[in-house]
Design a binder for these strands. Structure first.
Lengths: 327, 327
DNA sequence: GATTGCACTGAAAACGTTTTCACATCGATT
DNA sequence: AATCGATGTGAAAACGTTTTCAGTGCAATC
């Protein structure tokens, strides 16, 4: 038999309004509050969250839209987001887009139908361009990837600086022909590439970049093609953890020693990067911080919808390991 | 201005009932169906899913409760679950318990309040014991970890066989003093341990097991203690990917060569296990299959609540690599 | 002693849908 | 020609809460 607030009210000898107030925070006398608590216990009542959401017009739900939860970067961020959400009594709906703009659009629409409290979103460049066009009816915080300036709050890494830092590090180690392998779908990759190119120019070196879909297999294949040609780099910078993994695989497959034949540096200080031999030099991203800051921005935006757009830029930390040993 | 089904009905010149039917699958003439579609387009109507859920008593939501999404095993499973869910028009709420029975209980209750369609759950042993006590009002499919027999559908690995297989493999390679490092919170670890012990007995060897919290740091520390003592194993079996990683770190820290000083084998064929030198011998779990099978079981249970309890046991696949090279 | 204000309570409306029920309409069957 | 069943439609009820509105009682104030 189904027990609703009605049955609780009857059991406690009060009105449903009083039950609702006793359960939430409403002005109820201590005596009645205790009666209601007892009635809840006796009846085994569980509030129906759909009904609550409908009436109170507060979904208490946030959407988290990322490329692929299996990317450890997003995994870590999502964990932080979920912790923050549940701590505030909110649910999280997780969506994987596989970097597909059509799926991004679909999920953005779905979030509208869910009447979500807000969305945390890592968009592809394609979607980024159209993001400002028609306003969504929920606040959005962009993570990892920047949107058109001034349209949405965002929390991202200082990508240009990080990209430059890797170049500087490699140059200091005596490397000159430094190639770059960057993801083709995110603004993040573009910014890292810009930092790479700026640093290369500053050092009087000619950049050599290739863009790939951000996954290990694509990166590995691209490097194989690259090394089949004449202009082989002596060092390689990978714009994220998946591409970096592809690079390691490619080096193994080609029989290249690291860093002797090819120095390697990249992004994302994933656990395996110091387990391979030699360890990989990476820019570590403050993954948990990105998630919690995104939630903070979201909550503050909700509390104060008209405040100016904010952009939190976090610094990466370079972790220097054997893969970029000075030659 | 807010647009509900009411406004659409007015725009289309029909009743709200007709709009509802035209949007769902109800008997509506083609002419009106087109009128409604046009009105929806014109008004920019988006259905309110909370209202729909409340009225139709179908949450179209499934809960996924795991220890920690950052464990690559759960990451992969969750991705498969989410793909299957969204393909069926369902939402997924992801919950991390950190192996804490209190949080498990909390989330199980929360799922009740969400009136979820069903739950996919990887419980700790502590919760497993009490799972049958009070019936939940949604169907549950257990993954990775078995519950009390006959209480819930489940999809798990053939853990005893997998555990035995690793022992057999090591014994065939000439190893005798084979230690086992097993997680302390899951029935899975227990089953793998049982397989390990059975195989050891069969080979006339004395087992040496230690239980640890299932994370890399704890495993590493335990191995350090182990090797500080007198009875050092010459091979080690780790009951999951995190513990295996801890084992590798410990070996590195202790300056042990693999497999010379210590052979290593474990579970979960994560990408990094063949990037370390030497590659690690592991039992690969069909992670995506586990997720999709779980969803299938869930859907079939919903369609037919009274069918007998089912248990899908999947086989692991041994991937033999350098870490268990014959001595 | 009447009035004000505060703290609490219940009846009923509201949230935005789907579903039930009743009723037309119409072609096919008796 | 009357009846039936199938099909399409609208009015209104229902889903389970929260919130509004209108009190009620009681202590404090004038």
């Amino acid at each position: 038999m189904k027990v609703g607030i009605r049955e609780v009210a009857r059991a406690a000898g009060v009105s449903t309004a009083t039950v609702s107030r006793a359960l939430g925070r409403g002005p109820v006398s201590d005596a009645l509050r205790e009666q209601v608590a007892e009635a809840v216990r006796a009846t085994g009542y569980r509030p129906n969250l759909s009904a609550r959401r409908l009436r109170s017009q507060a979904a208490q739900t946030i959407g988290l839209i990322v490329a692929d939860i299996r990317n450890p970067f997003f995994t870590a961020v999502s964990r932080a987001v979920e912790d923050a959400a549940f701590a505030s009594g909110m649910r999280v709906i997780l969506c994987n887009t596989d970097e597909d703009p059509a799926r991004e659009a679909m999920y953005l629409r779905l979030m509208e139908e869910e009447r979500v409290t807000g969305v945390i979103f890592a968009p592809t460049v394609a979607t980024t361009a159209t993001l400002g066009d028609e306003p969504l009816d929920y606040p959005v915080v962009l993570i990892d990837r920047a949107g058109p300036p001034g349209a949405h709050d965002s929390v991202i890494l200082d990508n240009p600086t990080a990209g430059s830092a890797l170049v500087d590090h490699l140059v200091a180690g005596g490397y000159r022909r430094i190639g770059g392998l960057f993801g083709s779908t995110s603004s993040t990759a573009r910014e890292r590439r810009a930092g790479y190119e700026a640093a290369m120019a500053r050092h009087g070196l000619t950049p050599a970049v290739r863009a790939v879909p951000p996954n290990a297999a694509a990166a590995e294949a691209e490097i194989a093609r690259w090394f089949a040609g004449p202009a082989r780099p002596e060092a390689l910078i990978a714009s994220n953890g998946l591409i970096l993994m592809g690079a390691v695989r490619a080096a193994r497959a080609l029989g290249l020693t690291i860093p002797g034949d090819l120095a390697l540096a990249g992004f994302d200080n994933e656990p395996w990067t110091d387990l391979v031999e030699p360890g990989l030099t990476v820019i570590e991203q403050p993954v948990a911080e990105i998630g919690t800051q995104a939630m903070r921005l979201l909550f503050e935006r909700i509390a104060n919808p008209d405040q100016p757009i904010r952009k939190v830029v976090l610094s990466g930390r370079m972790v220097s390991r054997g893969s970029t040993l000075a030659r």
